[in-house]
Amino acid sequence: MPTLTINGKKVQSREGAYVLEAARQAGVEIPTLCHFEGLEPWGGCRLCQVQITKDGWDGWKKMVVGCMFPVEEGLIVLTETDEVRETRRVVLDLLLARCPDTPLIRTMAKEYGVERTSYVSNPEPTDCILCSLCTRVCDHIGVSAISTADRGAGKEIAPPFHEPPAACIGCLACAEICPTDFIPYTTSHTTRSIWGREFEMLRCEDCGRAHITKAQAEHHAANRAETTDVPQEWFRYCDSCKRKQQASRFPAVPQLV
């Protein structure tokens, strides 16, 4: 278990962890936009920049991203120096120019003293910060229906050829993970629409609530052996009914009072 120092505090961390995880464990807050615990770190938003140094480095410090820098014994991490705050400020200033109306970005930028962007404000404001969480989660569950398209300033999140994506299963993982609620969708009792596609909904066999798309159940059935040990039964009931069923299987606990 490597021991590192974060802002002067000695912290023990898991072998193979990254600086961000170690810091958060120690109660040190580092801002992130493209990070999600269940996904591989990506290092794109550049907000979790921290400075690292070591005893023998003669005071030389290096700027790294906390989400991807592996912890090591004796590492000294500084998360709130002037240089760190300035780098994050430039990033947030730029993001505010891109997304001038996005509440999350406005709040974060304000924390770094940016109320109005120093740059040219986007004439077509968007809420997408291109953190790629949506495309990465879609990859992660083995669907890869959407991806980033184009590059540089023209980069966007899109299904292939901007057509309704054939691979999409309507699971909403992309919309749920989006930190700025940018991906629109609708769900009714019978159908769900997202990315220009309509999906048939399956109903919970117990309460009758529309809880999952048929395509999603089929995808999991087809890939069950490879990716998960979840039984087919799993998709017959909605989450809250499953909880009730689980609970009912516990033996009755005698009341103490």
């Binding site: 938003c45 550049r46 993001l95 740059y119 040219v120 910060i129 590059r151 540089g152 300033a153």
Partner: peptide, 15 residues
């Protein structure tokens, strides 16, 4: 030619 993955390069170059 910026790939557009990271904010400083993508948005910074544009600005």
């Amino acid at each position: 030619e910026s790939c557009g993955k990271c904010t400083p390069c993508r948005e910074g170059l544009k600005q």
